[in-house]
């Protein structure tokens, strides 16, 4: 089963993303900020990372930059899910090494579809999108 790392400083968002990703049939690990995320990212194997940008401590850009600098997990797709959806933010995210940019608020099916697209699978592990969009 694919393991997804969710990094967000908002517990509500972490809960929300965890719920929809779990319902879609994936395993989930959560981190509260960039530092926590990096620690988990290097200590475990993940198939996809979902990260927020604006976080206390280490923000999402810095997390992506450091994750990519290590060169260890270059193949792991990183999705930014952020309220900051401007062109500059996207460019900054992509320059840091993100693969996809989703603007908040985002519906459940969009997030699940994006994960599946990046994993290269269209099969649904369990049920449909958990939250009607």
């Amino acid at each position: 089963m694919n393991n997804i790392l969710i990094i967000d400083d908002s517990q509500l968002v972490r809960n929300f993303h965890s719920y929809i990703v779990k319902e879609a049939g994936f395993e989930v690990t959560t981190a509260v900020d960039g530092v926590d995320g990096l620690e988990k990212f290097f200590n475990d194997r993940f198939d996809i990372v979902l990260t927020d940008i604006n976080m206390q401590g280490m923000d999402g850009y810095e997390f992506i930059r450091r994750a990519r600098q290590s060169g260890q997990h270059d193949h792991v797709p990183i999705i930014i899910v952020s309220t900051q959806g401007g062109e500059n933010d996207k460019m900054r995210g992509f320059a840091a090494g993100a693969n996809l940019f989703l603007a908040k608020p985002s519906d459940a099916s969009r997030i699940v579809a994006s994960i599946k697209m990046l994993l290269g699978t269209t099969t649904q592990s369990r049920g449909n999108s958990p939250i009607p969009a």
Binding site: S10, L12, V13, K104, P105, S106, D107, A108
Partner: peptide, 9 residues
Amino acid sequence: VMALQSQDS
């Protein structure tokens, strides 16, 4: 769902 996500911002 959409409204709740605004809590973060």
